[in-house]
Amino acid sequence: MSIRTFSAADIAERLPELSALLHACVHDGASIGFILPFERSASDRFWLHNVLPAVERGVRLLLVAEIDGQIAGSVQLDWDTPPNQAHRAEVRKLLVGPAFRRRGLARQLMVQLEVQVRRLPCRLLTLDTRSGDHAQPLYASLGYQVAGSIPAYALAPACDSLDATTIMYKQL
């Protein structure tokens, strides 16, 4: 397994695999901002119109985990913040493909993300996760603290309920 930073050119070149990763995670129930039905074209648009421009502008980092040359997971770090929050970055969209879970990839992606963030002037990381989700204990084990929870924060991917979110942070 290897983890590397993807450039805008890498995103464009590997778009089908990145789209497949996001598509598979959403269809597996991940609460990452999308609801069903979720088409591959919507996944393409996310990478091309949200992630790629931010990477090009130098305000987002995309780390990608590969196993045998195949994209297995990714995580993003977003530091496109207002001037009074230049010390803060947000962890976004930790994704591990369903076929690659239970191998420690999410943990390795998060550890590498923290290595990368230390090169920035950021000293505070924030994130949100569906309350009670399997990612929440992972974040806690990495030193993230719970700031609080917001009930009925987001529509569940299957559109059948409103899920609470837990806001977490880590001071570096």
Rank of each mutant, 00 (worst) to 15 (best):
I35S: 11
E39W: 02
E39H: 06
R40P: 03
A42L: 01
A42T: 03
S43F: 11
S43Y: 06
R45E: 07
F46P: 02
F46A: 00
F46I: 00
L48Y: 04
H49F: 02
N50P: 00
N50G: 01
L52A: 10
L52R: 08
P53E: 04
A54W: 00
V55C: 04
V55K: 00
E56H: 08
E56D: 12
E56L: 13
R57I: 07
R57G: 12
R60Q: 06
L62W: 02
L62C: 09
L63G: 08
L63F: 07
V64K: 05
D68A: 10
G69H: 09
A72D: 02
G73V: 05
S74Q: 15
S74C: 15
V75Y: 14
V75H: 15
Q76L: 01
Q76S: 09
Q76Y: 02
D78V: 09
W79M: 08
T81N: 09
P82R: 12
P83S: 00
Q85G: 08
Q85E: 12
Q85V: 07
A86I: 07
A86G: 06
H87N: 14
H87F: 11
H87G: 13
A89R: 09
A89G: 14
A89Q: 03
E90N: 14
E90S: 15
V91N: 11
R92L: 02
K93L: 12
K93F: 13
K93R: 15
L95Y: 11
V96Y: 04
V96C: 01
V96G: 00
G97A: 03
G97H: 03
G97Q: 00
G97E: 04
P98L: 10
P98A: 05
A99G: 11
A99V: 15
F100H: 15
R101Y: 01
R102M: 07
R102C: 11
R103Y: 08
R103T: 01
L105S: 02
A106T: 09
R107K: 15
L109V: 12
